[in-house]
Design a binder for these strands. Sequence first.
DNA 1: ATCTCCAGTGGGAACGCTCCCAAACTTGCC
DNA 2: GGCAAGTTTGGGAGCGTTCCCACTGGAGAT
Lengths: 341, 341
Amino acid sequence: MPLTLEDIARLSGVSRSTVSRVINHDPNVSETTRQKVQEVLDQIGFQPNLAAKGLVSGKTNIIGVVIPTNVIKIFSDPYFPLLLQGISASCNALGYFVMLWLSEPEYEHRMISQILHNGLIEGVIIASVPLRDSIVNSLVDSHIHFLMVGRHPLLDVSYLDVDNVQAARNAVMHLVHLGYKRIATITGDLDQISGADRFQGYLNALREAKLPFSQLLIAEGNYSEEGGYKAMQRLIKQKPEAVFIASDMMVYGAMRALREADLRIPEDIALVGFDDLSNSAKTNPPLTTVRQPISKMGNLAAEALIEMIETDSTEKKRIIVDTELVVRQSCGAYLSGAAVN
Amino acid sequence: MPLTLEDIARLSGVSRSTVSRVINHDPNVSETTRQKVQEVLDQIGFQPNLAAKGLVSGKTNIIGVVIPTNVIKIFSDPYFPLLLQGISASCNALGYFVMLWLSEPEYEHRMISQILHNGLIEGVIIASVPLRDSIVNSLVDSHIHFLMVGRHPLLDVSYLDVDNVQAARNAVMHLVHLGYKRIATITGDLDQISGADRFQGYLNALREAKLPFSQLLIAEGNYSEEGGYKAMQRLIKQKPEAVFIASDMMVYGAMRALREADLRIPEDIALVGFDDLSNSAKTNPPLTTVRQPISKMGNLAAEALIEMIETDSTEKKRIIVDTELVVRQSCGAYLSGAAVN
DNA sequence: ATCTCCAGTGGGAACGCTCCCAAACTTGCC
DNA sequence: GGCAAGTTTGGGAGCGTTCCCACTGGAGAT
């Protein structure tokens, strides 16, 4: 049977109010009283009842983390676990709790309603929202604190993101500088903002390098291993010299397709990926890829949301996290001889 | 501003108590009243305040899911996301919420205290606990409802598991029946119960087949891709004919080592894995492996825990989920010619 | 017609906390 | 020594539910 404030008060010879003040670091407590109470608190390992606290003050220290359905299908991608880990770690450090929703369409409506009205959730992090998902609109309307991981091009919301356009552009320019002319891409899910942005970066680089654009060199791969595999099978017929692939997971599939077709990387086709998952240093050959610090992004997202909650700020945050092109062997940068041209 | 029971009561011309009865499906409400109230409820999309409900009744419909630290390191293994997805799906369906802890040692003590005393958590699912972890002891002492995914050999607790010993034994016997004599194993983390159990299954099969046991044919691989890679590098020198590998993730690492050593699978070394991750059908060659229905296990775990909560049962559950050996090509079962001998 | 019984309903109390106001005690100054 | 002002403490009210008990009214038995 957990103890209450009243119990602690009796044990330390003060009132319920004073105990509450000590717990909440209210400065209006004399140092001697504070120490006396804190001692009892520590010894008992007292945890205030969150339901009671939440009921009266609205402060529960609980945030919601929402990952929409369509993404669950590609949960085999370590992106989400890593993000979750980052969020969880920062929440632990800051004394917050994580309530998780892997949203499924059939429950989505009820889920939103629960998040907004159950009186327990102080803020929401929502990751990888498809462009036309209505969840975001509901969140915007509700005025609950929330933060998207991945920007939203249409709505004025707080978000944390990498500059996907620029990062993709840089990756492709790296291929350009290595002398490749016929550069293809395997895109992510284009309904996903990140997918569309990385594709845009590819286009920007082609334009910048004055390389011709061809619809035939573009294959949509929906961010899955299987999608990368199939997309590469289609691309092979077009004989590209290099391919920019919008996620490492898709690269793994693409490599599988290339192995089956007996094509060498990078001699026959050079590859650049996106994510820098831990396995990407160990592929054969090691993968040149855009590193985004996924777990760190989880940290930052949680910290930003918690700051919004605690300052009750309505100002919209825009946090851009740096990426870095990690050059390994799949792009042909270290080919003996030189680049292709 | 969310509505309260009192508001609904006013809108439907009854009392707070009656609305509460309708919401909680209390039979002592006349059909006409019930319908009248339900209509208002549906139209508003009313969500009762969980904090208030939790405070007075202790019922919050929140369960905790705990995944201990050491496991987070191998979060790149899709096992945990899949399990989580299964748990989440069943909770959604049954109207429960999931509070997630990816526990880190530094916060572990506080975390347990929070789970047990914050008054919000009705039950806990805890996955992949290391043998000597103290969390489980705390949970046992606390009398909170909880269920382990993965049995605990020392404590009398509720759990859901596959029969790792038998499944591993069957996998190894499959290799035996194909005629292999010199069968090695790459174990998982032996501090993990599943790791120890699968290793025991390997030993049982050797004994049953009257094959000699050799310490040299055993390599510990700690469940990671990298661990599998290094373990296989060590094993190669022993020239085993076949290897039973305790997780598919480790198989991927092992395959990488074999590729680098220019050894063919299964002609030079036959492999059998454990998990049947979605990529395992697409390896080269496709992997023979023990299928465990991970997501389904998440479903069942959540459902079992919720049943324990709702019936307030103190009886310990033991749920064993069936596995199945999926025979593909890595074991050599379909080698042209026949088996090795 | 009266009484009993029970299904159906309403409202008070309580859950454990925070917030606010008032009380008590200190301190400093005339 | 007395008073104002400030500091510290205590306790009542209230958050939105559930639970319990009491009340109402209609059906059925006598």
